[in-house]
Design a protein around this nucleic acid. Sequence first.
DNA 1: AAATATATACGAAGCGCTTCGTATTTGCAA
DNA 2: TTGCAAATACGAAGCGCTTCGTATATATTT
Lengths: 138, 138
Amino acid sequence: MLSPTDGELSILRVLWDAGPLTVREVNDRLNRRLRNKQTAEAPPDKPIGYTTTLKLMQVMADKGLVHRDTSSRSHVYTAAAGRERTQQGLLRRFVQSTFGGSRTQLVLRALGEGDASAAELAEIKRLIEKLENEDRHA
Amino acid sequence: MLSPTDGELSILRVLWDAGPLTVREVNDRLNRRLRNKQTAEAPPDKPIGYTTTLKLMQVMADKGLVHRDTSSRSHVYTAAAGRERTQQGLLRRFVQSTFGGSRTQLVLRALGEGDASAAELAEIKRLIEKLENEDRHA
DNA sequence: AAATATATACGAAGCGCTTCGTATTTGCAA
DNA sequence: TTGCAAATACGAAGCGCTTCGTATATATTT
């Protein structure tokens, strides 16, 4: 299980959002400032060169982070792992390095910042109650 | 506001746990396998060289991550920023890069893993209810 | 067909993080 | 005081990530 780097992650985001894409399409989307709801990413100060994206995606193919279809001249790439699975992996690492492995500490810190809306808090609460129920019946 | 790297973070953890320390003391603690409750860190496979720790801490002093008292021959280091503040900074970065800035997504993902104890869930729930009350009165 | 545009492949430089070797200084002991 | 132990300072190598220049192949247009 290999975790993507920051640069790789930005490419994966594009692939997750916009399905199978060519290098050109990915590069365009990285440079164009289209902030999809979930994906809130700041547009780069300096445009990313085409060959930069190409090289990165080639590396990702080597690492197995993406699959590529080379049947046509413009190769078509797809993310190898889903968004959830990837986020879980990154989260695991992060919790380990920054919170000594305690997910609860992380959550408390994340909620403590105080920018969660009432609806979000309600959603989290709902999840907790669901988990508590599962616990009780386990 | 500068965020520590992984290596720097492991040193900060030691300083947070054990107050002002010399390089020697930090290096010893990094190599000795003393897993403090909060700090659950795996002991390194290969011992960390003394000068490695020294250099890293010198860099940290340059960056302002630690303060050092050079009045005695063995310099004494203290963490410049507190644990909470540092974790907040790292969390902010991580949420941005991995969850597109949505703390709620992060929390949902963190809780979804399903290894939180009943007591932990209760603690989180308590915090949420406290936040909801603050919201209501804001 | 020739010229132009667009694709991939590849090597290498730049940068930050980490690690270590080595020189130098300082304190302590024989 | 002479020698040994332990500390700091410093330079540089190694590695991974990112970026880019350039070579080469393949379409497309004129």
